[in-house]
Amino acid sequence: MLALLVFIFIPVLAGGQWVKIFISTGCFILAAAGVAFMYARLGMVSLGQIALMGIGGWVMLRMNHAFDLPFEINLAVAGAVTLVFGWLLAMPALKMRGLYLALITLMAAGGLEVIFSTFRFPNGGEGFWGVMPSVADPFRRPTLASSDADYLRYIILAIVVGFLIIELHMRTAPGRAWAMIRRSEAAAYASGVNVVYYKAWAFGLAGFLAGISGGLLAGGLGLLDPATFRASESIMLFALMIVGGSRGWLGVLIAAALYRIVPALFNDWGIDADISLIIFGAALLHAIITAPNGLSGQLIDLFSKESKRT
């Protein structure tokens, strides 16, 4: 319902600049959904999500400039390649838990940061890395959604599909296996759960979502900048996901909105965007101290109290 309303109105109401901001917000919603489910359902902290998004974006641009395939096929390839990278990331991480797992994913993100800033993103140039100075070839969006407003609708649709994929997992065997793993590995083994397999599956799904969101971001902007995918950005997204709340779609929306829309608003109002960092820090403290389920948990509690009163 909400998705439908948003689907119809936001692209119409928002002015040109804001449509672009909503497009990138939408991409980060998908990526955040990946980290959120890893954290809420498996208790695993992944600090490499935005770096993985960079891989998806890189593959998307590479495909776009190298071949003449439709957008959707490029997007599927971006998702699949990033899924495999998610698995690679899972390899060393499978034996680890908690802080060590977080550090491994952060190191991987750091490594990718170096690669992205060294080789940059393909823009139509020659060779494997495909980079040419200054000018860039155009990026082909999906034929159905070449205007910004239509492309935003396309992304909202992708978010809905992404949420449905996660929900489907939660209601079937993988979701139950993940819940047992989160309880404890002993509980998982006692349930016959192949822990390594299902952890790898979770990394794969999170990687896939990152890949799709990176691919969509490439489509939204036409060009990608290595600065977008710095390791620190992955940490920021994770922190904001804690602020928003990791357990449901509302928390993910809040996280991505804080990540993209708040700095843009500040820009609009002529406030230094770095101020948002201070606000994020305060929000994180607030969430850790008073709201174990994040802002979304507080909002849901508030509404359920209100509706009980009436």
């Binding site: 819940a179 989160r182 404890s184 349930s191 759960v193």
Partner: peptide
């Protein structure tokens, strides 16, 4: 099959899903 000294059922699943989690495998 085993149970643990400190019970190890998954809090965020229903009782039905806790049982199903074994049957799944």
């Amino acid at each position: 099959r085993r149970s643990f000294q400190k019970e190890q059922i998954a809090d965020d699943l229903s009782v039905l899903d806790n049982l199903q989690a074994i049957a799944d495998n």
